[in-house]
Design a protein around this nucleic acid. Structure first.
Lengths: 221, 221
DNA sequence: TTTATTTTTTAGAATATCCTAAAAATTTTT
DNA sequence: AAAAATTTTTAGGATATTCTAAAAAATAAA
């Protein structure tokens, strides 16, 4: 139906527009997609012609309802494939993005619904990111950044805001995973580092503020 | 590494060269790939430049060792994905080809080895076609066309030579699947139709010669 | 073995996607 | 509010893949 390239742009526009609301700029897209700005101008003009986005010269793009529908389906596909790769094929969480980036472009009427059923209808991917359902509805979850948690409170690791391989491997080395229960022991005033306690492993460790601002946690239910 | 298009050509050259030995003609490739002949000429010239095939003007193409290695890996990927789609996602055997055609182009160093392990190292795909191993070695199996089986002999359905949706659905309607045990009761002299007995279902039915020439069987082990 | 037919290649062009360099518009600074 | 800096678009071109029409080569027929 649409080319991989068009799909990549739609997904990028969705991603950026979920951060800041209002139109997405050419420059932001160029950075996100690692392309030159003129390539972006070309493509968003084409997307607008196909009624997947609205575009006004010098004022950025916005997805139409149809564009949003497609982009959301792509996020769904991407994240379901990531679940498959980690849960079924045993890939580490820092290695699934590249492959899912390719798998998400595979076109078939009910491939994804079958995959979803096979995986047991997961609501979050291996990085804790929400997986929209077949109707495009995103699951809700009350999560916050670890950096905002009060001292003394116990929480559970629920996701990462930085998906880089280096950060994910850093977490592995520290023994921090999705579902890991932690207690915030102390926030160092000087540089905002955190002393935390890993409950299951009965171990204390120190976390930089940068790391704490890249970790989502949720209350213990 | 290589584009989907290059991979499609390599796979087609392998397929055709396994039927007839010697170089594969431009016309045969054009038919196989549903493209115009000049497109084929262009591509095989490019493949030759990249040392994936040898090509002599007006005399067809042949894969080099490297081309053969890549094409074999593609067949391996295609067939493993087909096993995944039927065994794990519950797709009917007449619906997997199109999807596998896309999935086989997904590039990743150990995706296929992990998939192979997850599937339990299958040696044959849902249509009974052999799956080359990671070293490119094809599993052997003594199979013959049902049309060549002597009257009175019992055999097991081991594969199809015609992969068309209509034929596969025809077999479904008849209750014939991979692994179905049959006995050849009679060969009608007039049109070579076969009366066969489905052992498990304790049922007799008639099969056209055309169908019998599209079914592989193997001896009961 | 010359002629006719078929196959293959060359020539030239279209589309999708990307690029660099230069021009135009917008935003920021003074 | 004019000048400077930044961002975006236009212009023009490259590559990969495909196509149709015409020319060239190979094969088949007379």
């Amino acid at each position: 139906m649409y080319t991989s390239s068009e799909e990549d742009y739609l997904k990028a526009i969705l991603k950026l527009s979920r951060k800041e609301n209002g139109p997405v700029t050419t420059g932001a897209l160029a950075t996100e997609l690692h392309t030159a700005a003129p390539s972006v101008t070309d493509m968003i003009r084409r997307l607008a012609e196909k009624r997947l986005a609205t575009y006004e010269r010098y004022h950025g793009v916005q997805l139409t309802d149809e564009g949003l529908r497609i982009a959301t389906a792509l996020v769904r596909r991407h994240r379901l494939w990531e679940v498959f790769l980690t849960e079924k094929l045993g890939f580490p969480w820092d290695a699934v993005h590249e492959v899912a980036e390719q798998l998400e472009h595979v076109q078939h009427p009910d491939l994804i619904e079958r995959l979803d059923a096979f995986l047991g209808y997961p609501r979050f991917d291996p990085h804790g990111d929400p997986i929209p359902n077949a109707q495009g509805v995103w699951p809700e979850r009350q999560r916050q950044l670890l950096s905002t948690v009060e001292v003394g409170v116990q929480v559970v690791i629920a996701g990462v805001d930085d998906h880089s391989v280096t950060f994910l491997q850093h977490l592995d080395r520290l023994g921090i995973n999705l579902g890991t229960r932690i207690a915030v022991l102390e926030r160092v005033e000087y540089d905002l580092s955190l002393y935390i306690h890993l409950v299951e492993q009965n171990r204390d460790l120190m976390l930089s503020d940068k790391a704490a601002r890249s970790l989502f946690v949720e209350p213990i239910n």
